[in-house]
């Protein structure tokens, strides 16, 4: 009986009066800078979440002075044990967390105070971990909706997406919800690409797909990166992710534990021992 009384539905789940699912669960963070903004911005990386500290709402801090950065043309991967705050770090970069100190920079601009929608407008593409497609819309409509903020002709972008994900072209008239798990993820990534983002954020793109599909998805992600879009990605499957990563961040309890190129981290004895399983 605490919190917002307007959100108290008394556990009612009567489908004849309210529609289950699809409601907004997103809580845009408000940047409440209490500790003063530490500007450690070095200006070299394309997207930087700079010494971010914060948590959800009024809750405790989950991130502690965490820094994540992606350079142009690179794939950066956030890995770490369960509950390390990997997804939280990405959400902080995307503006869905109360960042209490620290800042986020995109292409030399401070975007710390922008809402997630505005960040999309500035060129961030975000693929959530779950519910990342419009299941009742066709594949093509999903892509069209991805390009909603564009007022120019986006047919060439769509052609590029179809080129990257040929299977989507075959299924473009099919409802996205009818596709397999791997295909859905391709739709999700394709949708995010439709804005021609300057940087792409992927939250566990391989969650819940089979190993074979996972390999294929990683291949696709590398191809996307080759088109020149920097990618920041959170991954459960640390080993494979680090293999394709230009840069890796190992988070432990919301703080940077190890940072380096993917190869360095894979070779690092500490990292191997602590969570790659030897």
């Amino acid at each position: 009986m605490s919190g917002n009384p307007y959100q108290d539905d008394r556990g009612n789940n009567d489908a004849s009066i309210t529609k289950p699912g699809g409601q907004s669960r997103m809580t845009p963070g408000t940047s409440t800078q209490t500790g003063g903004r530490k500007e450690q911005h070095t200006g070299d990386a394309f997207l930087i979440g700079d010494s971010m500290t914060g948590g959800y709402g009024k809750g405790p801090d989950i991130l502690h002075d965490c820094t994540i950065a992606v350079n142009k043309g690179e794939i950066a991967v956030i890995v770490g044990p369960n509950g390390a705050g990997k997804s939280t770090a990405m959400k902080a970069v995307f503006g869905m967390l109360d960042v209490r100190s620290g800042s986020v920079w995109l292409d030399g601009e401070d975007i710390t105070d922008l809402s997630p929608q505005d960040r999309v407008g500035r060129g961030m593409g975000f693929v959530p971990q779950t519910q990342n497609i419009f299941t009742s819309l066709t594949v093509e409509e999903n892509l069209e909706m991805g390009a909603f903020i564009r007022r120019d002709d986006f047919s060439d972008t769509m052609a590029q997406v179809y080129e990257l994900f040929p299977i989507l072209k075959d299924k473009r008239k099919q409802a996205a919800g009818e596709l397999s798990g791997g295909q859905r993820q391709q739709v999700a990534v394709g949708r995010a690409l439709m804005t021609k983002p300057k940087v792409l954020l992927l939250d566990e793109p391989t969650a819940g797909v089979s190993p074979i599909v996972m390999d294929e998805l990683f291949d696709r992600i590398i191809e996307v990166a080759r088109t020149g879009i920097p990618i920041l990605m959170v991954e459960q499957n640390a080993r494979q992710a680090l293999e394709i990563a230009d840069k890796g961040y190992v988070l432990v309890q919301g703080a940077n534990a190890h940072t380096g190129t993917g190869k360095e981290l894979l070779a690092d004895a500490d990292v191997r021992k602590s969570f790659l399983g030897g």
């Binding site: 009612n12 789940n13 009567d14 489908a15 004849s16 009066i17 289950p20």
Partner: peptide, 9 residues
């Protein structure tokens, strides 16, 4: 049922 339909019922 899979969800309630009490209101309309």
């Amino acid at each position: 049922l899979r969800s309630d339909y009490l209101a309309i019922a």
